[in-house]
């Protein structure tokens, strides 16, 4: 039991019916992926590769057509009960769109806690403060609304909300893509600390390979709905096996690489 990974996706298939064309689009054709306890697993791929669809399937926002998703040894059925849903929480890309603008931060956090826990009164209050501390925000912000906050602060609130009911797995879909680099660094550090301090497992979806390299323990590369390579981060970046992975890694702009390396390749444009 304890040797089992926290999350196991086996041959997951997700299709979308297209109304007019009467065809079926396979967004995820066959995805198998494990997330171990206390691991951060990166899921990388280009737009349209199916990475967000797979993430949504893991959280239960998207029904799967075949295959199975097993969490803590239990395979999810078509409908998940509340306890199942509680175990996996999600953080979205856009910190501007994922928080209710009319709610204070306290309201946002309390909504989750009231729904899923028995905490009331002082205990509820204490938990809110604890969560704010966990994401390195001053408790004084509990009374603010998202409009008065920066993108980085909002994303921290979104993380606090996801963590409020103590999920074992956090699914983060491009959580830093919309943030400036200095703010991004703070969120990356926070996720890494949460893994180290509370043993949080994270499925980290990103198209930024430099961040994945910095943060993740393992990486899965998804291409056209299929996981083409899944290995430890160090191995995959050192010695990619799959052709698509190789292409992806070769395209990373390198901070310390020789300038315009390879960019002059190819024939002249002949204006």
């Amino acid at each position: 039991m304890s040797d089992d990974p926290l999350l196991r996706c086996s041959d997951v298939v997700v299709t979308f019916r297209q109304k007019q064309a009467r065809t079926v689009l396979q967004a995820v054709t066959s995805a198998s992926l494990d997330v171990g306890r206390g691991q951060i697993v990166g899921l990388v791929g280009e737009s349209g590769s199916g990475k967000s669809t797979l993430a949504r399937a893991v959280v239960g926002l998207q029904p799967i057509d075949s295959g199975s998703i097993t969490f803590e040894g239990r395979t999810f059925g078509a409908r998940r009960n509340r306890a199942d849903r509680r175990g996996i929480q999600m953080v979205f890309q856009d910190p501007y769109g994922s928080l209710d603008p009319r709610m204070t931060i306290r309201g946002t956090l309390e909504e989750m806690l009231r729904r899923h826990t028995e905490l009331r009164g002082k205990a509820l209050d204490a938990r809110c403060c604890e969560l704010m501390e966990m994401v390195r925000l001053p408790a004084s912000l509990l009374t603010s609304r998202p409009a008065g906050m920066s993108g980085g602060q909002r994303q921290r609130v979104a993380i606090a909300r996801a963590l409020s009911i103590k999920p074992r797995l956090l699914v983060a879909d491009e959580p830093v893509a919309a943030l400036d680099v200095s703010v991004q660094a703070g969120i990356v550090n926070l996720l890494s600390d949460l893994r180290d301090e509370v043993g949080l497992s994270i499925l980290f979806i990103s198209h930024d390979l430099s961040i994945v390299r910095t943060l993740c323990d393992r990486v899965s590369v998804i291409y056209r709905g299929k996981i083409v390579e899944e290995r430890s981060c160090a191995e995959l970046f050192e010695d990619p096996h799959d052709d698509y992975t190789k292409e992806l890694l070769a395209a990373i702009p390198r901070l310390r690489g020789p300038r315009t390396e390879g960019l002059r390749d190819g024939s002249s444009l002949a204006f």
Partner: peptide
């Protein structure tokens, strides 16, 4: 604060 694929194991600086 910029992540660098060629220099890992370093904590990113957050301004």
């Amino acid at each position: 604060s910029t992540p660098d694929v060629d220099r890992i194991g370093r904590r990113l600086y957050s301004i």
